[in-house]
Each structure stands twice: as structure tokens, then as C-alpha cells.
Design a protein around this nucleic acid. Structure first.
Length: 781
DNA sequence: CTAGGGTTAG
């Protein structure tokens, strides 16, 4: 007879060695024969092994027959349930222990139970969090790691970080949990900061760490991190793991360093599918379509089965030159192979369609996708927002809310862009609250979009406050703020900010110069603008593009230097396009130069015959010059060519509710009161010396309707309504889709004086702040 | 390890 203890050790080793279920079943049988089936240590080991071999049912059966399990055995079973995707069972067991036994859960119990709760309703996890604190594990490393992971899985980034902060001891696993949690929630900057803290703090990192950090740095185009990773790997003396190499390939490719990426690819002796995919996508996003396709074919020749990642990488969504035929053939391939069912593939194709302005095709693909990821929704929403279909973007967002699909920073960025375009301040504020609640504000895309939203909704001060509180700013952030100042006619602030930007070491881009030039132009800062243009070419070595030239023409023309503007056009090294002539035509309107206007519009009708705007502008110029026959003949030409005119409309928000007015609108429920208010106001204005200027007030109106319609341009209705519906002394804020006409501009000046109100008007081009009878644009728009 | 979604200017 063998002694029980020798017996037990013998069987424990046997259990450990088992690699298959039948193996383990034999051992189990022998254990029973030897009378060890009621031995705690043996049963625990057996349970552990059974659950590792995915036989959780047998494991639980075994335990249920055991007379008096201890906490250790329960913990093993909870872990088994959790790892075998039975989170409910894990939780039942945990609550069973608390209710039916006198055992006190320990850190293992909490760690395993919390892990299971990642797949259950969030409130369960929160409950467990509380109970673990009561149990005395508020700063336990293992329980804490599980909680951090859980909160990240629920996108509760703030809570995750809070738990993390309270854990004094931090090992590699905890740091990895934090870093990958941040990356998965699009908190890229923060993930890199965490990695830095980890390294500085002396915690050893591993390949898991690097494989989380590399995509984050690729996302941010942070080449330095990649180089640092390479140095660290070399220092550590280990061979560069192939996974890390693949991550590096992707990073370098996304930073435009395609040659380095290629050389890393060549370093891999026998690249796997994933490495191929990284390289194919690398070529694609660097516009090296041929190399990309070549590598793709090479991959096919190797007999390797391509996957969805290969296809997505092949689609050059980053390329500004989308190719509809290519997209269509890839789409067909995906339809035939069933690949289109993959949400990543359909999202990629949706995006290309959107970029090619094929928004209907994009929507069809979206609707046909059986499985929509958050990314699919984001692609569709941004597609609408970028194509100017802001209402569609917002309604899709509302649909998401109804379906309780949780937005992420990408979603809110697109929605903010839509709010900005639309001037929807109350929705924008609501989104801002959401952003604070979710902790998205530190995301640079989100905060930049917020700045833009507030500025475009009229709150330039709020935009600047946000800008000043941002810890990290990129070029786009600076551009957005500079552009905001331009929009509000604050040229000096724009110039100051530009200087500050250059001083803080940020390299300006083409957009920066455009924004500064427009700001100068809208504020009449001719010298400032000319200096910037000169500096752009000579100090910054920037080759001006067509739009920069157009901006200069606008600057000179607006300031009345029409001859100089024309001279500038003739000296341009590139052929002047519609933007340039359009700017000149606009200047002719302001300064009533019909001859030059005719020259500019002849060029425009030739270059851009379908655009009605130029006809309207020319007609208005003739009218302003009281040359009515000419004006009429231009309008005749518009009619003959059957070109559609954009109807004017104005939006005003009162008590968070938007009201939209069109010309001569009578549909508003309070329309009678509005007209009474308007009449009264006009009477007071006449006494104060206001005269309607019929002849310049003709954006898109027929001659005979002029007198009638001048009185009821949509912005007048909106202002009158605003005066009735809001408290005396409060600011009135309106948004219109066309440029404000001279008559309405005068009207608003008088209105601001008589009613003692600040009136802020956003027109198609810029903002006007009316106060005490004066407009911030200096009558210069 | 790879692939899909985001901010500014016109």
C-alpha cells in the first residue's frame, strides 16, 4: 500500500502533465480508484486543469460534489468560469460564497470576479469595485489591474485612471493594461505619456508593451517613439521580435519613411501575412500603388490566403486622389468573395466613396452592412459632415444614441464639425458636456474641433479660453484659432497668434498662411498681409498655391487697390483660376468698378460656367451702378442657362430651439407679432435716418420684387423674432447662408443702436458683431 | 504584429 501523501504528489504531477482531456479523464479515474477524490489539493488541481482544457462543465460538476470547498478551490472555479466565457456563472459563484459560506473573498476572488464582469452590465462591475474596497483591496495590484482593465472595456477612461492612481505598486502587467486600454480608447497621447512614465519609473517593458505603443505612435506620427523603441530594443540586447518589426514598419510607413519601412521588411527573413499586410498598406498610404499591388501579387503567388486586413490596406483611403474605378473593382471583389461582410472592409470602402463625394453609394454600403462597428458609424457620420450634409450627420448620431451605441472621441469630433458648419450652438454645448463626462477633452482632435465649433457659433472668447487651457497643441489647433480670429475680423489678434506660433517652434502650413492672409484681408491689414506673403516665400520657403494668390488678390482688392490687384494677377507665375478672378470680382462689387467686373466675370464664365454666384454678383454690381438694363440682361442669362439660385435663409436659436426663416417667410407661428415688431422698428429707424437701399439689395431677387423683398430678407425676420423672444439686453445671434447685403447690414446697425443689443451675425464668409450702431467689420466685407 | 473612423483653410 502506497502512502496517501506519496499518492497525492504522484497524481498532482500526472495532472500537470496532462495535455488532452482523455489523458486527464484516465488520471481522474485512477484518482477515484485510489480514494483521493475527496482530497482537497487533488480536486483543486484537477479543477484547474479541467478549466484550462475548456472543460468547465466537468470542473464545476467535480466541485459541486465536493463536501467542503475552501476559498482557493472557489477561486479556481471562478477563474475557470471567467476564462471559459461564463461570466454569469463566475458572478453567481462569487455571490454564493458571500451568501452561503463564512469564507471571506480574497484578492484572487476579486481579481477573477472583476475580470468576468467586463462582459456583464457595467453596474455589476461598479458593485464589485465597491465590495473589493470594503474587503480591503482598494489598492491591491491584482484586483486593481482587473478593475483598470474592466473600466477601459466600458470606455470609462476616467475611472480606469483613478483606480490606477491608487495602486502604489505597478508591475509590467498593470502598465500594459493601462497603455493598451488608453490606445483602445483613442487616448494616444496619454498612452505615450504612460509609456514614458513606465520607462522612467524603471518598470521593465515587454513585447506586449511595445505592440501597444507602436500603433499609438503611428497614429500620432510620432517617429521619435519608434526610434526610441529601436534604441531600447538594441540596448536590451535582444533580437528584434518580428511582431515589433512589423509594428515599426507600419509606424515608419505612416510617417512617410517608406524606405526605412521597406528595409525593415527586408530584414525579416520570412515575413508572415501580417508583415506583408503592413508593407502593402505602407506602400498604399504613401501613394506607391504599383509597389503595393506588386507585393499583393507576390503574396498571392506564395499561396498565402489574404485576409480582410490585406484588402483594407490595399485601398488607398489616405490618398487624396481617390480612384472611382479602382474602388469599384475592389468593391466588386469584396462582394464576390464575401469580404464585404467584414466591417473593416465595408468601412474602408464606405470611406473612399465618401471622399469621392459618392455619398449615396457610401450610405448604401453602410445600410447593407449586417454588422456595424463603431468605426462604421463614424465613417458614415464623418462622410456626411465632410460633404456638408450636416443634418444627415446629426440625425445619424441621434440614431446611434437611440440604439445606445456609445460614441468615442472620433464620433464627437465629426459631430462638432457638423455643429460648427451649422452654427448649432446648443447641440455643440450638449456635445461639450458629453465630452467632459467621457473625459474626451484631452484628445487633441476633440479640443481643436471644440475651438472651431465655439468660434463658428459666435463665441470667440470661449474658443480662446479653451485654446489657452490646452496643454498640447498641434498645427491644426493653431490654424483653427488663427482662422477663428480672421472669421471675426480680428486681424491683429490673428497676426499676434501667428507670431506666437512661430516663436513656439511650430512650422506653419499652407493652411496657416491662408488663415493669416484671410484675417488680414477681412480686417483691411494690407501691409500686414503683404509682409506675411513675403515672409511665407522668403523666410519659410513656402511655394504659394493658387489659393494663396487668390487671397492676396482679395486683400488688395478689398482695400480698393484694384489696379495693384490686377497687376498682381498678371505677374502670377501660375495661371489664375476661378478663385483669383472671383476675388477680384468681389472687390469690384465693394468698390463699384463695372469695367473691371466685366473683365473678371468674362474669365469666370469661361472657367466656371455653371456657378450662379458670379452672375448674381455681376448683376448686383451693375445694379449698384444703377445700370439696370445690364443687370437685367445678366439675370436673363442666368434664366436662360437654367442655373439654380440658392435661396437665402437665416437661423436663430432661442432657448435652445432653432428657428429658420426664409425670405418673405410667413410660416412661423409668431409671424404676426414679428411683422408688427419689424414695422415698429422700421419706423424708429426712418426717424433716425435709415433708408432702404433697394439698388444694392438684390442678391437673387427679380427687379419688380425688389422693394417688397428688401424689407423682408430672412435676417430681418430673424432679428425681429429674436427681439421679441429674448430678454431685453441679451445678445442676439443669427446665422445666414449667404453674404449679408448692404441694406440688411445697415438695418442691423440701426437695430443694435435703437434696441441697445449686441447682435452677432454669421454670414457665408465671416462674422459681424453689431454694437451701438457700429459693425466690427468696419463696413468692410 | 497588420487593416477601417476624427480637427483647421477653400
Amino acid at each position: 500500500m502506497i502512502s496517501p501523501s506519496r499518492d497525492r504528489n504522484f497524481f498532482l504531477k500526472l495532472i500537470n502533465k496532462a495535455t488532452t482531456l482523455s489523458h486527464l479523464s484516465q488520471t481522474h479515474a485512477q484518482i477515484t480508484l485510489n480514494g483521493l477524490h475527496n482530497d482537497l489539493a487533488t480536486v483543486t488541481k484537477l479543477t484547474h486543469k479541467l478549466s484550462d482544457l475548456n472543460s468547465i462543465y466537468q470542473a464545476s460538476l467535480l466541485c459541486s460534489k465536493f463536501p467542503k470547498p475552501d476559498l482557493f478551490l472557489y477561486n479556481v472555479l471562478i477563474r475557470g468560469f471567467s476564462q471559459n466565457n461564463f461570466p454569469h456563472k463566475a458572478l453567481d459563484l462569487y455571490f454564493g460564497i458571500r451568501k452561503n459560506t463564512t469564507l471571506k473573498p480574497d484578492n484572487f476572488t476579486y481579481a477573477f470576479t472583476v475580470s468576468a464582469s467586463s462582459y456583464l452590465p457595467e453596474k455589476v462591475g461598479v458593485l464589485l469595485h465597491g465590495q473589493s474596497i470594503v474587503g480591503g483591496f482598494g489598492s491591491d495590484l491584482f484586483v486593481g489591474s482587473a478593475l483598470v482593465d474592466m473600466y477601459f472595456n466600458f470606455s470609462k477612461v476616467g475611472y480606469a485612471c483613478k483606480v490606477f492612481d491608487e495602486i502604489p505598486e505597478r508591475d509590467t502587467v498593470l502598465w500594459n493594461t493601462v497603455i493598451s486600454g488608453l490606445v483602445n480608447n483613442c487616448f494616444f497621447e496619454e498612452s505615450l505619456r504612460a509609456f514614458k512614465d513606465m520607462v522612467v519609473g524603471g518598470t521593465r517593458f515587454d513585447s506586449t508593451t511595445l505592440t501597444a505603443v507602436l500603433p499609438a505612435s503611428a497614429e500620432l506620427q510620432e517617429l521619435r517613439v519608434g526610434m526610441m523603441v529601436q534604441c531600447l530594443v538594441v540596448k536590451a540586447g535582444c533580437h528584434c521580435h518580428e511582431y515589433i518589426l512589423t509594428g515599426l514598419i507600419s509606424l515608419y510607413a505612416k510617417c512617410g519613411e517608406i524606405l526605412i519601412a521597406k528595409s525593415l521588411f527586408d530584414q525579416i527573413g520570412c515575413p508572415d501575412l501580417v508583415s506583408y499586410n503592413a508593407m502593402i498598406s505602407g506602400f498604399s498610404c504613401n501613394n506607391e500603388t504599383e509597389s503595393s499591388v506588386k507585393l499583393f501579387k507576390e503574396l498571392l503567388c506564395l499561396g498565402e490566403r489574404v485576409n480582410s486586413s490585406t484588402i483594407v490596406g490595399l485601398i488607398p483611403v489616405f490618398s487624396p486622389f481617390g480612384n472611382l474605378d479602382l474602388t469599384w473593382s475592389i468593391h466588386c471583389f469584396c462582394l464576390k468573395s464575401g469580404m464585404v461582410l467584414n466591417p473593416s472592409v465595408s468601412t474602408a470602402v464606405t470611406t473612399v466613396y465618401s471622399r469621392l463625394c459618392e455619398i449615396e453609394s457610401a450610405r448604401k454600403l453602410f445600410d447593407d452592412s449586417p454588422e456595424k462597428s463603431l468605426t462604421s458609424w463614424n465613417a458614415m457620420i464623418s462622410g456626411y459632415a465632410q460633404n456638408g450634409q450636416t443634418e444627415m450627420a446629426i440625425s445619424l448620431f441621434r440614431e446611434m444614441q437611440d440604439l445606445e451605441i456609445h460614441p468615442n472621441p472620433v464620433t464627437v469630433t465629426s459631430i462638432l464639425s457638423a455643429c460648427a458648419q451649422l452654427g448649432a450652438l446648443s447641440l455643440g454645448r450638449w456635445v461639450h458636456d458629453l465630452i467632459n463626462k467621457e473625459g474626451f477633452e484631452s484628445n487633441i482632435f476633440v479640443s481643436t474641433a471644440l475651438i472651431d465649433m465655439y468660434a463658428k457659433c459666435g463665441s470667440i472668447a470661449k474658443a480662446r479660453r479653451l485654446f489657452d487651457t490646452m496643454q498640447e497643441k498641434n498645427v491644426v489647433t493653431w490654424n483653427a484659432m488663427i482662422c477663428s480670429y480672421g472669421l471675426h475680423g480680428r486681424g491683429h489678434e490673428a497676426l499676434n497668434l501667428f507670431t506666437k506660433m512661430v516663436d513656439s517652434g511650430i512650422s506653419p502650413t499652407g493652411v496657416t498662411f491662408l488663415s493669416v492672409l484671410y484675417a488680414c484681408s477681412h480686417s483691411g491689414l494690407v501691409n500686414g498681409g503683404e509682409e506675411i506673403f513675403h515672409s511665407m516665400v522668403h523666410d519659410h520657403g513656402f511655394e504659394p498655391l493658387a489659393e494663396h494668390y487668390a487671397c492676396m488678390v482679395d486683400l488688395l482688392g478689398r482695400a480698393g487697390k484694384l489696379e495693384k490687384a490686377l497687376e498682381f494677377i498678371y505677374k502670377m507665375p501660375i495661371a489664375p483660376g476661378p478663385a483669383v478672378w472671383g476675388a477680384l470680382l468681389g472687390a469690384c462689387m465693394i468698390h463699384k468698378d463695372t469695367n473691371l467686373a466685366q473683365l473678371a466675370s468674362d474669365k469666370l464664365f469661361e472657367l466656371d460656367p455653371e456657378n450662379v454666384g458670379y452672375y448674381v454678383l455681376l448683376s448686383n454690381i451693375y445694379s449698384a451702378d444703377r445700370n439696370y438694363p445690364q443687370a437685367a440682361s445678366v439675370r436673363q442669362a442666368v434664366k436662360k442657362r437654367n442655373l439654380a439660385k440658392t435661396p437665402g435663409c437665416t437661423l436663430i436659436e432661442v432657448n435652445e430651439t432653432p428657428h429658420i426663416f426664409t425670405s418673405s417667410d410667413r410660416s412661423h407661428p409668431q409671424i404676426a407679432a414679428i411683422y408688427i415688431k419689424l414695422e415698429k422698428l422700421m419706423g424708429e429707424m426712418m426717424e433716425a435716418g435709415f433708408q432702404t437701399e433697394t439698388f444694392t439689395a438684390l442678391h437673387d431677387v427679380e427687379e419688380e420684387e425688389k422693394e417688397l423683398m428688401v424689407k423682408v430678407h430672412s435676417e430681418k425676420l430673424a432679428i425681429a423674432f429674436g427681439l421679441i423672444a429674448s430678454e431685453p439686453g441679451t445678445e442676439i445671434r443669427i446665422i445666414k447662408n449667404l453674404r449679408v447685403c448692404l441694406d440688411c447690414h445697415n438695418f442691423t446697425k440701426f437695430a443694435s443702436k435703437i434696441t441697445e443689443r449686441l447682435i452677432v451675425v454669421r454670414d457665408a464668409n465671416r462674422f459681424h458683431h453689431f454694437k451701438e450702431g457700429v459693425c466690427s467689420c468696419g463696413d468692410y466685407w
